[in-house]
Amino acid sequence: MSVLVYIDQADGHIKKSSFEAASYAAKVAGQTGTTAEAIVLGKVSDDLTSLGRYGISKVHHVADDQLNTMDSKLYTNAIVQAVESTGAEIVVLSHNVNGKAIAPRLSARLKAGMVPGAVSLPDTSAGFVVKKGVFSGKAFANISLQTSKKIISLTPNAFTPVQQEGTAEVVPFNATIVAPAVKVTATNKVKGEVPLSEAELVISGGRGLKGPENWGMIEELAHLLGAATACSRAVADAHWRPHHEHVGQTGGSIAPNLYFAVGISGAIQHLAGVNRSKVIVVINKDPEAPFFKAADYGIVGDAFEVMPKIIDAVKKLKGV
């Protein structure tokens, strides 16, 4: 019996959210008196022994080219084979784009109760209860898993990975792989930007910025801080910014350490996508903007006057 964590990769590199999942899996293993092992699918360029630093004792690696793109059925089959071979009772994944496709399949296949989007370690004082966000960030639910096998998909940026000394043993894993039914024909990635879902710091703009030509200051501040950029629904609908930047109830839901909102009033639907952010900063010229009620820091002022000064102060701080 062990805890098995699925390590998600893109272009041969382990995703940050998977290091979080690995560390979480090691903690759960500690709680339940067992060890945490990992499964990695596809060719990778990262050194997998480094997963030992996140508490993983053994890495099962299926280095098959067919697994370099994600087909939820193939991935599920491979992970199920690893579950059977390791005897794992608990499977941990990141609740990222791929985790959202794989975790429910695993749950249905293994008849294993699942917590999609966990935000806490399991409470094992009475059964096995894990907290998750519900009502689009407006509440939490404590979910009891009533099956012997359990699936936990962990909300990105909800759990800070703990690093320690350690080297994981990497062993090849021979999973039976059939031809994928879903063939990836193209990948369109925005180069050189921090993916929004993985970003720790997010700078976001709303209709208050008046037009796409004024996004330079959002991008400059984001660049200085290594932050991702986001926007409100109105901005995405007006095609000022690409749709994948839209955060809110019907766009992406994010939980960065910093959400820095410029010219966004903070309608309840927008808040639903960002209210799990650890610190919210609001710059808005309207003192009645509802966003100030959800904010930690704020400036009531004109973004066009305030933002250049903020950028200067950050430049001074960073010595650039």
Binding site: M114, T147, N275, K293, A295
Partner: peptide, 17 residues
Amino acid sequence: LTKIVSFELPPAKAGVK
């Protein structure tokens, strides 16, 4: 496979600085 045991609301914000 699962059961919701309870709900909770997020802790209130301390207020904007």
